[in-house]
Design a protein around this nucleic acid. Structure first.
Lengths: 119, 119
DNA sequence: CTTTCATATGAACAAGTGTTCATGTGTTAT
DNA sequence: ATAACACATGAACACTTGTTCATATGAAAG
């Protein structure tokens, strides 16, 4: 703590007030890590592609793999991660596992991202 | 391409139609990579913290470092990355560099993420 | 019950990422 | 000028991540 305080710049006036107020407004650490972990899901192009596909239609694993030209193993590994984050779910239909978006926030988040990228 | 087609499952009926339609609806590769790169910015807890702080108030570099208890060097490296993604900007004021959010989408994206995490 | 198809998973490896440490640059004050 | 402060940057390192390869599981068809 002493070492950190030494880093503080010597701004006059309401400096400490602002820093203190902002500190109290921060979410707790657990929430911050959860949030970062959530956005990590959108930070890989393979997962991004999978979610784009599922935004259009639910689909079995091998169709996703074929459509995207990515190996079945790679898709399966990524699906596992996406399921852990509760972004997609699946059900069995005979031999196939049908995947679909589990959360409408996926669309909103991607749309907000697109707005930034396309401007 | 032959190898990929071998992976295709043998679903009957409208299978190929759906796959074809979805394929055409996908954004081009450049957009997809830009989008993934954008979300990568939100996928690290240090950058997440920086953006939360700047959502409350613009602030100089060393105050951000002090407030978050993270070394000035680490903050500076992350600020560089955030600036490259056009998520934050800065101006000089005497000895200090004042950082601030450069894009209102930051707030919307984080809010959508929070909705998912907090539900 | 054996085979085949659809999917999951573990190990290994290459590539990417974030931090620290040391040092460089630019600004202000003495 | 020179010292002190605010910030930036490069190299090194540990750590994480995504893919491939080989193999395992699980359902359905013959």
């Amino acid at each position: 703590m002493d070492e950190i305080n030494e880093l503080m710049c010597e701004e006059p006036g309401t400096h400490d007030d602002v820093v203190g107020a902002v500190r109290e407004s921060l979410p707790d650490d657990d929430t911050l890590y959860e949030l970062a972990d959530l956005f990590k899901m959108f930070g890989d192009s393979t997962r991004m592609k999978i979610m784009f596909v599922l935004m259009e239609s639910e689909m079995c694993v091998c169709d996703i793999a074929e459509l995207l030209g990515i190996s079945q193993s790679a898709i399966s590994h990524q699906l596992r991660i996406l399921k852990q984050s509760k972004l997609i779910s699946s059900r069995r239909e005979g031999k196939n596992i049908i995947c679909f978006l589990a959360d409408d926030h996926v669309r909103s988040i991607i749309d907000q991202g697109l707005s930034h990228v396309l401007e």
